[in-house]
């Protein structure tokens, strides 16, 4: 997801328009249908913007989908998987929902925080890792405790596994 060579800061690329258009065909051809495409459009745009959504990019989505920018900001701030502030090169989401909590996610979070020297919601000073404040279950309870790093699931976490996974991140 993150780590694109040249993050795009404003407007939409041809490729992005095409990807959004592909999503639009799945929804009714109406203002409401266009509104339905906001989430996939924001995923596409965030992917190419260094893992977060600069305002100019959200405005570009709003303009393309013929929505008021505010309606796009609402969606972008509602969902935890979108970031409207700059983030590190990698986003680490440790699940703290009930199954993971019962299997020791609090200790995993504490370990990761101590290891990286940051709290949940913060980014390491070298811009390498953002420890996301994960609010909801990621639907991998069978492997609890678990975490999502960028677009990859890691399950049955232990401090050793955390060391290994985080150390490998560029």
């Amino acid at each position: 997801m993150s780590g694109t060579a040249e993050p795009i800061e404003a407007g939409l690329t041809e490729q992005e328009r095409a990807e959004i258009d592909a999503w639009l065909t799945r929804f009714p051809d109406s203002p409401e249908g266009k509104r339905s495409a906001v989430i996939p459009a924001l995923h596409i745009v965030q992917h190419n913007s260094g893992g977060w959504l600069p305002r100019a990019r959200m405005d570009a989505v709003a303009e393309y989908l013929e929505l008021a920018p505010t309606r796009v900001y609402e969606v972008a701030t509602f969902y935890g998987m979108f970031d409207v502030e700059p983030v590190g090169r990698h986003k680490v989401n440790i699940c703290t929902n009930i199954s993971c909590m019962l299997r020791g996610s609090n200790e995993i979070v504490a370990y990761a925080e101590k290891k990286l020297g940051i709290r949940l919601g913060e980014t390491t000073s070298d811009g390498r890792i953002t420890l996301k404040r994960e609010e909801e279950c990621l639907a991998a309870c069978a492997g609890a405790p678990m975490m999502l790093v960028d677009e990859v699931y890691y399950t049955e976490l232990t401090p050793e596994k955390i060391d290994q996974i985080l150390d490998e991140l560029e």
């Binding site: 305002r55 008021a68 920018p69 505010t70 900001y73 609402e74 701030t77 509602f78 969902y79 409207v84």
Partner: peptide
């Protein structure tokens, strides 16, 4: 602002207990 003024300048940002009415920007 959305329906009468037509300017849509305010929105409900964030979620749940963190919801804030504002412009975000």
């Amino acid at each position: 602002l959305d329906e009468i003024a037509g300017t849509s300048e305010l929105g409900a940002m964030h979620r749940g207990e963190h919801t804030e009415i504002g412009t975000l920007v």
